[in-house]
Nucleic acid binder design. Sequence first.
DNA 1: ATGAAAGCGCTAACAT
DNA 2: ATGTTAGCGCTTTCAT
Lengths: 337, 337
Amino acid sequence: VPRSRVTIRDVASHAGVSHQTVSRVINNSERVSPETRLRVESAIKELGYRPNAIARFMAEGRTRTFACIAPNLSDYTFASIIEGAQREARARGYFVLTASALDEDDFASLVDQIIISGRTEGLMLINPYLDNRYSMLPEKFPTVFLAACPEREKVNSVTIDDFAAAQIATRHLIELGHQQIAMITGPLAEDCTQNRIAGYHSVLREAGLEANQELIIEGDWTATSGLNAVQKFLSSGIPYTAIFAQNDRMAVGAIRALREAELHVPDNISVIGFDDMPLAAYFDPPLTTIRQDMHRIGRQAVRMLIQAMESSNITPQHVRLPAKLVVRKTTKSLDIQ
Amino acid sequence: VPRSRVTIRDVASHAGVSHQTVSRVINNSERVSPETRLRVESAIKELGYRPNAIARFMAEGRTRTFACIAPNLSDYTFASIIEGAQREARARGYFVLTASALDEDDFASLVDQIIISGRTEGLMLINPYLDNRYSMLPEKFPTVFLAACPEREKVNSVTIDDFAAAQIATRHLIELGHQQIAMITGPLAEDCTQNRIAGYHSVLREAGLEANQELIIEGDWTATSGLNAVQKFLSSGIPYTAIFAQNDRMAVGAIRALREAELHVPDNISVIGFDDMPLAAYFDPPLTTIRQDMHRIGRQAVRMLIQAMESSNITPQHVRLPAKLVVRKTTKSLDIQ
DNA sequence: ATGAAAGCGCTAACAT
DNA sequence: ATGTTAGCGCTTTCAT
C-alpha cells in the first residue's frame, strides 16, 4: 500500500506558487489569475497529481458518503432500491457504503463502524423491521427509512403509497366481478402490510362487500408462505374466486399450490401479486401485479437525506410514491368463465 | 454536520494522561499499565468517546475499504456476488463501496473518484466486459475480476469453472438420451460464454456426437433473447430434442417460445438453464439448471484482494469454483416419451 | 510504561 | 490575487 503520491505541495513548488494556490485551482476558486491557473494546471498534468479524498474529508469534516443498510443486498427489491440510491447519490457527488445487517448485534456494530465513526453523513435503512434495530440509531443523524416507516414521529421515510396501491389491486379484482377475495399478507408487524390490508378493506367497504377475516392469511414474503396460505384456504373450505398476494413471490407460491390442487389460474381463481419482480411476465401465466418503482424510492431517499442535512428542519418527512397496476394473465373476469 | 465530537485529547486530559496513551489503549497496545488502561477506558465511557475513522485513515494511509463496480447492482447475480463480498470484507475489517458504471466515461470518473483518489485499497470488478473499461485501471492496484476473466496475464479473477459446468449440463442431457442439443449462448465476446461452448463441445465429442453449428445461437442473457433464439431454431427446421441455455433467464424465454409453438417442455423438448436464479423452482415446469454459488465468488474475491495486498506477488491468480447440477422438471429422458 | 514532536494532505482563516 | 499559519484527529517515531 504505497503512499508515495504526488501532493498539493509538489505541484505548488513545481509551479512556483504556494500550496494554497493549488488548492484554489483544484477547487475552482475565482481568486486565481488566469496565468497562474494555467501554470498550476500544467504542473498538475505533468506530475499526474490527483487530490487525495481522505485528506479532503479530514480537512472539510465531511465524507460525501452515505450508508445504506439492508437485511440483505440480494433481494431484488432491496438491490433495486440501492441501485437507485447509488445513482442519485453519485449524481450529487456522494457515494454509498452498502452493508447488510444480519441481526441486532451486527447492526449495532455497523452503526458504530460507519456512523458513529464519522465515515458517513447520512443513513438509508431499508426495511427497518427486523427486531427493533432502529432504536440503536444516534439522535439527530440524518436518516431515511425506505420501504417502510415505523417511528413516524422521529424518522423520515420513503415508501410507495401502500394503501392506494392495495386499493388499486382490490378494485381491479372487484371490477372483474370478484366478490370473495382472499389476501395473503406480509408480516402483520410491518406497516406496509397493515396499509395494504387497510386499502383492501376500504375498497371492499366502498363496494358494499363484507370482508371475511378467515380469507386473510399472514405470510412472510416467501413463495413458500404463499403456497402454505393457499393450502390453508383450500382446507378451510371457504369459497373465494380471487387472491391478492402482497408480493409476487407469494403470488407465485400461491399459483403453484392452486395448480397442485388442479385449480386453474385465472379460469378458476384470479391472482394478483405486488412488486412486478423481474421475469414476472415470464411466469405461467404471466403475473398480473402492482408495479412499484424501486429505483425511484432510492433516488427520493437520497434527495431527502441531502435536504435533511442542509436544512436544520427537524420535522420528519414522509414521501409516498404512486404504484400502478400491470394487468397480465393471472386475473380474469368472473363473467366470462 | 457537526464536528463537535469528543477527541482522543479530551479523553487524555480527562484521564490525566497524554493523548498517545489513549491511542495505545484504543489500539490494544501492550505498552500500557493495567491501571492506566482502566483509567483511560472509564474516561472513554464517561465521555462517550468513539474513534474517528477518517482521522485514522489519514494517519495510517489506508482506508480499509474496497470498491466494487458492476454494470448494475440489481441483477441477482451481481447483487449476490456483492452480498458475499460485503460479508467477507466485513468479517475481515473492511467495507465495500459499491457503484454501477453505465459506460466508459462513467467508469473512468468512478476510477478517478474512488481509486485514484485513495478512497479504496482494492477493486472488485464484476463482469468487466462492457466496452474495454479494464484498460483504464491503474497499474499495480489490487484488482480482482469477478464472473469473467479477460486479461488473464494481468489481473486476478474468480469465476466458476464454466467449462466443467457446461460439461455437466451437456452430459446430463446426453445421459437422458438426447443427441441433438441446441445451445443458446451469452455474448460471444465473453470468455465465460466461450468456456461454456467449449465444455459443451468437449462432451459431444466424447460421446461421439457431431455438433451442428446452426444449433448454437448467440443470446445476450435476457429472456427475450432466449425467446428469439428458439424462434430461430423453429424456423430453421433443424431437429433437436433439447436446449442448453447459458443462463436461466434465456431458458425461461426459450420455454415461453416453445409453449407458444405448442411444444411441451419436457415432453417434446428438454431445457436446462444455468445459474439457479431465485424462484427457478417456481417456474412451470420447475427449471432444471446449473447452480453457481455467487456468494462464494464474492467471498473468494475478497480473500484474493487481501492476499494481493499483503504479498507483493504479482502473478495473477485465477480461481475456478465448482458448479453443480440441479435436476428439476424441464429435462426428461427421451426413452420414456 | 509514558510523553513529546512530527506529520498524513488537505482546507479555512487571516493576512498582504 | 496570493501567501502564511493553523488545524482536522489520529498514528508513528523517538525520547525518557
